[in-house]
Design a protein around this nucleic acid. Structure first.
Lengths: 339, 339
DNA sequence: AGCGTTTGCACAAACGTTTGGGCAATGTGT
DNA sequence: ACACATTGCCCAAACGTTTGTGCAAACGCT
């Protein structure tokens, strides 16, 4: 029914001008400065004018088929409904667009099988490169992708020695620890996130390390694993508060877990920022908007996305690429300031 | 440097088996049930075995070039860092994957020019169809896309008579109004969101209409426009509270605006859920987690995404498609329950 | 005028598929 | 023995580009 009109082709332009298709191609591709020997500048003008007129747009499938380049990069994220990843992706998209790349993003639910499936899906689509925001320790995925010779970079989380753009999460954890130590909080707990994510592991480690350096060893039962969402934070806090030893301060490795913990504390009769200090991570937009504004570590999410693209581009052009960890900064708010 | 090995092609398989490439193609494409006259079942077996062995994956560019079908749909959203859109997109991606479609999503920042640019970018990529989550009243964009004969559907917001999957936002507004009326709130205000978004307009209208039916006319200065984020909610609330007439209840057309409003109220010495009632919209995950849990209208975001894909598929197969509005439900929480 | 270089374009092959036709060999019915 | 249908496969064209090569005309120089 929809008699879909066919788009203009190079051939059509060539025919209408009595030229050969190759000439048209060269003119339209060469730099608009007439330097080349592709055609006389008069012919070039005519070609460009007509192309404009007909609204010519190259068929990307033909181009990619011929050139073996897609200008496409696949992006795998755990889930875009996680605002952190959404921001990272915005940075990716922005930088990619600036370089004439298209991105296509897929949710993997932080699930190994989906991850695997999406990755091969992307490979099947013949992407030029891949960006993984969902790295997890202990899968062979990246080694396998590396074997396929398609360039890729990790972002947000690192794993193994693969090229990655991350935040210096270890430092982030230290920053929180230093802040807590300055305020004199010695009895502290950590909501540590999942062990498969380097972000969680490094943040917790940074925090614990700094305390140890200060001569305070945080007992094992005050460091509890969790998921990244509010429910996870709530459960973890429950575990901690039930333990009998009620800490002065809690460091949650992300904002959502912190919010969950805060809710749990309230249920136990502890007001955040008054009876108990809480700090989160990522400085999500709501952190500042909460009734008791949340102390959090600001991470350069957007920037990480952009850097990941730059790194991938370097890889694509055959250069080597070195992993980078971008510095976080601590934003102190009321939730961690006990009187 | 990267001597990128070439992937297996049909030709390679054919050669290795002494067959013609067309035979291989037919076998690999035909339904795996051997019904056809493509090849003897013995040959078919050999072909499939070898294809498997070599890890053959069809080159999508060649396929699309030949078939004029990409199995690609472009998705335009204002921004994925808006959790509502992220959820809608997850629904889209899920349903698309089930039907063998790939999606690629682009942020438009709710900016007309970016929107236009991304749309033509998608069209240039020769997508089979488009899904717009960022419809805004008053641009010719959709009429122009319609003229290009590429099927498309709107989701979340509707505009003009174009096919759309939305939430019944008008009803959502009514639900809140009914709840407020039941509680006896007669002096109310609306944080109405931006006028270019049908979601905002319909929700506010539904609310105002229901009040009018109850014989209460909400004065114009108690209905104030805003953006969708916390800052916008805060500013709008400021305007309202400065007006001298402090309302008993505020309806904000989305959760973030509601949170901002709540913060502003606090600054004015009004505790949400005690001194002032507040309701939001979308029932974002945090709504339930806030220190004072937020009353909100739950919208089927995921489902809308899925439905949008289904509708697009109908369109793609040449059938007609009717717009649908999915029903919302009210979730009452403490923020709207004054004693 | 003659020679070499540059300019301006055309030719054709290739990228990896899909698909309408064709044609020989085999099978079926009389 | 015949006609005729079916099976099993091959041929070739087409999709819209890009790009190495070839070749005539125009130009510069002595």
């Amino acid at each position: 029914m929809a008699g879909r009109a066919r788009p203009t082709t190079l051939q059509a332009i060539a025919d209408q001008l009595g030229l050969h298709v190759s000439t048209v191609s060269r003119v339209l591709n060469g730099p608009s400065g007439e330097g080349g020997r592709a055609a006389s500048s008069r012919t070039a003008q005519r070609i460009r004018a007509l192309a404009d007129d007909l609204g010519y747009r190259p068929n990307p499938y033909a181009t990619s088929l011929r050139t073996r380049r897609s200008n496409l990069v696949g992006v795998l994220v755990p889930r875009l409904s996680d605002i952190v990843l959404a921001y990272v992706y915005e940075g990716i998209e922005e930088a990619a667009a600036e370089h004439g790349l298209s991105t296509f993003v897929m949710n993997t639910q932080d699930d190994e099988r989906t991850q695997e499936a999406r990755a091969t899906m992307a490979l099947d689509r013949r992407v030029d490169g891949l960006i993984f925001a969902d790295g997890r320790e202990g899968t062979g995925l990246f080694d396998r992708v590396a074997a396929r010779e398609t360039p890729f970079v990790l972002v947000n989380r690192h794993v193994g020695g693969h090229p990655a753009i991350t935040c210096d999460d270890h430092l982030g954890g230290r920053l929180v620890a230093e802040h807590f130590l300055e305020r004199g909080y010695e009895n502290v707990a950590v909501i540590a996130g999942p062990s498969y994510a380097s972000t969680a592991v490094d943040r917790a480690a940074g925090f614990v390390d700094r305390y140890r350096e200060a001569g305070i060893v945080i007992p094992d039962d005050m460091v509890v694993e969790s998921t990244f969402d509010t429910a996870g934070g709530r459960r973890a806090a429950e575990t901690i508060l039930r333990g009998g030893n009620v800490p002065t301060a809690i460091f949650a490795v992300n904002d959502f877990a912190a919010i969950g913990a805060s809710g749990c504390a309230r249920d136990h009769g502890l007001l955040t920022g008054t009876d108990i200090a809480i700090a989160g991570f990522n400085d999500t937009p709501l952190a500042a908007e909460l009734p008791v504004p949340l102390t959090s570590v600001r991470t350069p999410m957007h920037e990480m996305g952009r850097e990941a693209v730059e790194m991938l581009l370097r890889l694509l052009s055959g250069k080597a690429a070195e992993s980078r960890r971008l510095p976080p900064t601590l934003v102190v708010r009321k939730s961690s300031l006990l009187a």
